[in-house]
């Protein structure tokens, strides 16, 4: 069984330690996520694993081959979608794929078939002979991803595969990633700063902060880290909300905090098995009329906050920050 083995991998740029003694392993067939803000060292790890950057310290093997000593062997096994698109604007979609396919010595006839197949898979067949420069970002990224699939890699590295894409394109790319993982048994390592994306795609997630792995587990286990078994977060909408009502909720033993969002909405944090019922009863007792109740689940963002002590915040790019602040994704349960 060969996946990826990383041992004390370190990369220094001058005095900056971009990756700091990172160790982890990725199983074959897994989708492994590296989650963290920009500048956390995700890209550097990907670049070291894909033989593009030499580690300062430590070792890593990909598919059983050392990334420094056997870089040629590693390159034959891997595909790379990096943060910057690896496509030539002045070449058509087909020419781009042909160029990269030929670099892997794929014979012409087979390559042509492969290109048609892949283009069909991402629904871009009719754009085959158009220059990539005329494509939308979403289309380009789809070509970019199938480019990385040309050599049928065992291991695929995806560095921020949905960065800068609209929601629809993001969904398509994610579906494609899941599909090739399931059907082609491709091991996938992806980096992202989007909690939701990591949650949706990954079998396991390594949370990276300041070049170190802060936590590594399945998304469910990571979330359990903070939620515990008995904590509940409720969002209630009560049109006839009164101050007395809030006070009485606050005075409940199981309730740890109440915050009022607006004149009709409150958010309650509580602990204990019967917290839900107790709170509802208290509101009813005060003649409160409940229109809706949402139980909010902890998100990876909360996990990140809990583990690192700060929010996911970009060191470099403040713009992306906007996208990342997806607040608690509510799961509605109306009673």
């Amino acid at each position: 069984m060969h996946g990826i083995e990383v041992n004390n991998l370190t990369k220094r740029f001058g005095t900056l330690v971009a990756v700091d003694h990172v160790s982890f392993s990725v199983e074959e067939g897994e989708i492994f996520g590296l989650l963290g803000p920009n500048g956390a060292g995700k890209t550097t790890i990907i670049r070291m694993l894909s033989t593009l950057t030499r580690p300062t310290e430590g070792t890593a093997s990909v598919g059983g081959y050392d990334v420094v000593k056997e870089d040629g062997k590693v390159r034959e096994l891997i595909g790379l979608v990096s943060e910057k698109m690896i496509l030539y604007d002045r070449l058509t979609a087909k020419e781009n794929l042909w160029f990269f396919g030929r670099l892997y010595n794929i014979p012409g006839e087979l390559l042509n078939k492969k290109i048609d197949e892949l283009l069909k898979l991402v629904k871009l067949t009719k754009w085959k002979n158009s220059q990539v420069g005329t494509f939308s970002t979403g289309m380009r990224q789809r070509i970019n991803v199938i480019r990385a699939m040309l050599n049928m890699p065992e291991i695929l590295f995806l560095d921020e595969p949905t960065l800068g894409l609209d929601p629809q394109s993001s969904v398509e790319i994610r579906e494609f990633i899941r599909k090739i993982n399931r059907e082609n048994k491709v091991t996938i390592i992806l980096t992202t700063h989007m909690m939701a994306e990591a949650d949706m795609l990954c079998d396991r997630i390594g949370i990276i902060d300041y070049g170190k792995i802060a936590a590594l587990d399945t998304p469910i286990n990571l979330k359990k880290l903070i939620s515990g078994a008995d904590s509940t977060i409720l969002e209630l909408e009560i049109p006839n909300l009164t101050t007395d009502m809030i006070h009485s909720i606050q005075s409940l033993k199981c309730v740890s905090s109440v915050s009022q969002n607006n004149s009709t909405r409150i958010k309650v944090n509580a602990n204990g098995d019967d917290a839900f019922d107790t709170i509802i009863d208290a509101i009813r007792a005060n003649k409160g009329k409940i229109i809706s109740v949402k139980t909010l689940e902890p998100t990876l963002e909360d996990v990140f906050l809990q583990i690192t002590g700060h929010e996911v915040r970009d060191k470099a790019d403040q713009k992306i920050k906007m996208k990342m602040h997806r607040h608690h994704m509510p799961k509605t349960r109306v009673r």
Partner: peptide, 13 residues
């Protein structure tokens, strides 16, 4: 700079 060199560097050539 545009990043396309990585595409060549990552290929076994």
């Amino acid at each position: 700079e545009v990043g396309t060199l990585d595409g060549m560097m990552v290929a076994p050539i």
